[in-house]
Design a protein around this nucleic acid. Sequence first.
DNA 1: CGTTGCACTGCACCTAGTTGCATATGCATC
DNA 2: GATGCATATGCAACTAGGTGCAGTGCAACG
Lengths: 182, 182
Amino acid sequence: MHMALEHAILVSLSERAGSGYELTRRFEKSIGLFWSATHQQIYRVLKRMEEAGWVAVDVVAQSGRPDKKVYTVSDGGRTELVRWLAEPDPGAGPVELAVKIRGASFGDPSKVAEEIVRHRSAHAERLDVYRQIEKRDFPSPSALQGWHLHQYLVLRGGIRVEEGQVEWFDEVFTALHHEKDA
Amino acid sequence: MHMALEHAILVSLSERAGSGYELTRRFEKSIGLFWSATHQQIYRVLKRMEEAGWVAVDVVAQSGRPDKKVYTVSDGGRTELVRWLAEPDPGAGPVELAVKIRGASFGDPSKVAEEIVRHRSAHAERLDVYRQIEKRDFPSPSALQGWHLHQYLVLRGGIRVEEGQVEWFDEVFTALHHEKDA
DNA sequence: CGTTGCACTGCACCTAGTTGCATATGCATC
DNA sequence: GATGCATATGCAACTAGGTGCAGTGCAACG
């Protein structure tokens, strides 16, 4: 699962321009509820993004503080974000999808909805596999002990995670779908 | 979130001895339902573990196939596994905890149960924070549109994930607790 | 006036992990 | 007999990311 920090930063900067330092704070809070990135990584990626022409820098002098480099998404960055939002990514995890959802307004939300549908079915299939394993290997769970019980509990974790994912995807799709109509 | 692949391998090898190749297959399947590791990484870690005296190697000649190196957990490895299973790790994610649960029988299951309780409360707290944000920032979700809607949906994802985690932790704790009595 | 502390950026080094390639054995298949 | 596939191991090079350290500027505390 590659993190695609670039795109998370593009989304965040699209919402509001900011410096590397500010972005670090944001990743510690709202975005970073499920995502973490050190300032180092952010500075490095910002540099790379600047070289790629995805962002523009603006050095801002501040009173009482060192200068800061405020980054803004440039045309190249907007184009890339639109491309990425529309591109199917079978390897994307919930975190990447959350970034796509959060950035949907900066591209085509219906494309994001399509991606959600694809992932919903992938997770539904996996959930099905888990449930079949559960039925086949653990027909009477209350009798389990030791090692077998522990294996069962881990499987239960997988089932709960997938259930949650599928329900979430449904919620997201329904909401995006209704929004389209409005 | 460092993966602690060493410990996952220790657990897997405790269940059954095997070669690097076999471990790679296992990580693709049962364990790797939520965990991935390439053969490269596994070979490298096995080498490191051998040097650390956690595993012992046994070269086995096979008919019709190249030789394989079968790894077994040694005393040093068992000690380390017991230590790791009992050690609290606030930075552990659900994946690491799943490994601990799966390996509980090779250490002290009640210590693992304690760790589960700790994480349960951490996730319950986080869930509470999310729910407060939900109530405060999105009092009437059905009216949301665009960007605000998308932010809300991501928050919903976080809430669902945490809910699932907490429920799972409860299930695990209850099961481990009953097992203790039996 | 010195120290502490925050805002802000950055370098150098380390670890974990992936990708691509190499190599060897033996089977089945065309 | 060649080609391809599965088993089995490994090296070399690369990427992503984290850790440690360092420096600047200014403000507030004592």
